[in-house]
């Protein structure tokens, strides 16, 4: 049965609920930053989280980067050779990876590999009362559990994106130069001539750093805010992946329009 009033009420409640959560998340972010002292002073805590979200994501990032590079090499060559400029393959592969694909795809992979794991870990600690127990032992769970995971993610993400781009360029080189036979020297020199350090590389690193902050924050918040049941944790994990993906793509649009404004 279709009831427009009920539908509107439903939509309104949904919007209010989301705005509310956004407010809670913002307050959580500030609290997290204020209580980050422990995570930085006792750096082995953060080191363990770099291992957890960075090292454990290495395989998926490296393999995906390689495959994306291989595909870029094939597609790029196919398109460029129509215009007789197959030497520009290096430029095309490098620019696509550094500006967009590196940060965005690495961010999406990071959200589904490390982000979901962080949410699961914190959510499970909450569901089994480990966080409450810690709080009762006069140890602040935000400082001891949440902040190191957040910073571990923030540090790992730009490194993973750089590794993704590097692997991708290697993949493009492998296809273009080794298999198809584009000139090796032209591949690299064209690339170097048109890729600018500050404009292309630093902007890409900046993007991945912003994505790292966003994904890590979403992951720790969803975990910390999850309902303390098995169902609640699994829903929180889903929300982490979905929200992170949306956040990455939306932020990517905003950042790109700021960074490369003069081109349009």
């Amino acid at each position: 049965m279709f009831n427009p009033v009920e539908l509107l009420r439903h939509l309104g409640a949904g919007v209010v609920e989301r705005v509310w959560r956004l407010g809670v998340a913002s307050r959580f972010f500030v609290a997290l930053l204020l209580r980050s002292g422990t995570a930085l002073r006792r750096y082995p805590l953060t080191l363990r989280e770099i291992w957890f979200s960075g090292v454990l994501s290495l395989i998926i990032i490296l393999v995906s980067g390689l495959f994306v590079g291989l595909v870029l090499g094939l597609q790029g060559y196919e398109i460029l050779q129509r215009y007789g400029s197959a030497e520009a393959l290096g430029t095309m592969v490098a620019l696509s990876l550094l500006r967009e694909l590196g940060p965005v795809v690495a961010g999406l992979l990071f959200a589904s590999r490390a982000g979901s794991a962080i949410t699961a870990e914190i959510g499970l600690m909450k569901a089994t009362e480990q966080l409450t127990a810690m709080d009762m032992m006069a140890v602040d769970p935000v400082a001891r559990v949440v902040a190191p995971r957040f910073w571990g993610g923030v540090i790992s993400m730009p490194l993973l994106a750089a590794l993704f781009s590097t692997m991708g360029i290697f993949g493009g080189w492998l296809i273009g130069v080794v298999f198809i036979g584009v000139d090796d020297g032209a591949f690299w020199s064209q690339m170097q001539a048109s890729v600018d350090f500050r404009y292309d590389i630093l902007n890409g690193v900046l993007k991945s750093a912003v994505f790292g902050v966003a994904v890590s924050l979403i992951a720790v918040f969803e975990g910390y805010d999850s309902a303390p049941t098995a169902e609640g944790v699994s829903r929180a994990i889903t929300r982490t992946v979905v929200t992170s993906a949306l956040a990455i793509l939306a932020l990517d649009f905003v950042l790109t329009s700021f960074m490369f404004r003069e081109l349009s």
Partner: peptide, 19 residues
């Protein structure tokens, strides 16, 4: 190892790929 290859990748991008 992770941090080293990560920084290595950044250096590679800066020196070999970019100008």
């Amino acid at each position: 190892f992770f941090v080293a290859i990560g920084i290595g990748a950044l250096l590679f991008l800066a020196l070999k790929v970019g100008s």
